[in-house]
């Protein structure tokens, strides 16, 4: 059995059942950030420099989506032959922010529309001899 590792360190919990993206919150004004902001609060009304790590909502609604039919350049790691994939922009209600992610394998673009509820899942992005490298994806809650 290969070891399960994140494709990028510290961006999400490694909980296969109920994964969550990991962001930060400014301790002064409580604004959320993803990817993590740990230096300067970007709220112009706030000069906060202290941040805490927080897991983000694992569900959201589709803001828009697009199915890709052309193989992107490196560093994208493409299956051979290339398989089309869909990128969805998903709005988190509590955090009031939009986060991109691919749609989960097996979900077709025609199965979603603007407003569809989706949840976070983890899938293998690529592997080597001893590790699976995982990334977050979005999957319709009804799928």
């Amino acid at each position: 059995m290969k070891e399960q590792r994140p494709a990028v360190e510290g961006w999400f919990t490694m909980d296969r059942e109920r994964p969550q993206l990991l962001g930060t919150r400014c301790q002064a004004c409580r604004t959320f950030f993803f990817p993590k902001e740990e230096q300067f609060c970007r709220n112009p009304e706030c000069d906060g420099r202290e941040f805490e790590e927080v897991p983000l909502s694992n569900k959201g609604r589709v803001w828009s989506y697009t199915e890709h039919h052309y193989q992107p350049p490196e560093p994208y790691i493409s299956p051979d032959p290339f398989v089309p994939y869909t990128v969805a922009a998903v709005e988190l209600a509590e955090e009031k922010m939009v986060i991109l992610g691919q749609l989960a394998t097996g979900v077709q673009a025609k199965e979603i529309e603007v407003g569809t509820e989706v949840q976070l899942v983890l899938e293998t992005l690529y592997e080597d001899d001893s590790n699976d490298y995982l990334v977050w994806k979005w999957k319709p809650t009804t799928h």
């Binding site: 494709a7 990028v8 890709h68 992107p72 490196e74 991109l100 691919q102 603007v114």
Partner: peptide, 26 residues
Amino acid sequence: PDWLRFRLLGATNPTYFGLYARRRME
């Protein structure tokens, strides 16, 4: 982040154009 969007998501420049276009449709 410009490297990561390609590696993690396959988000090319046309990805963003596609997102805006689809949203106009819907």
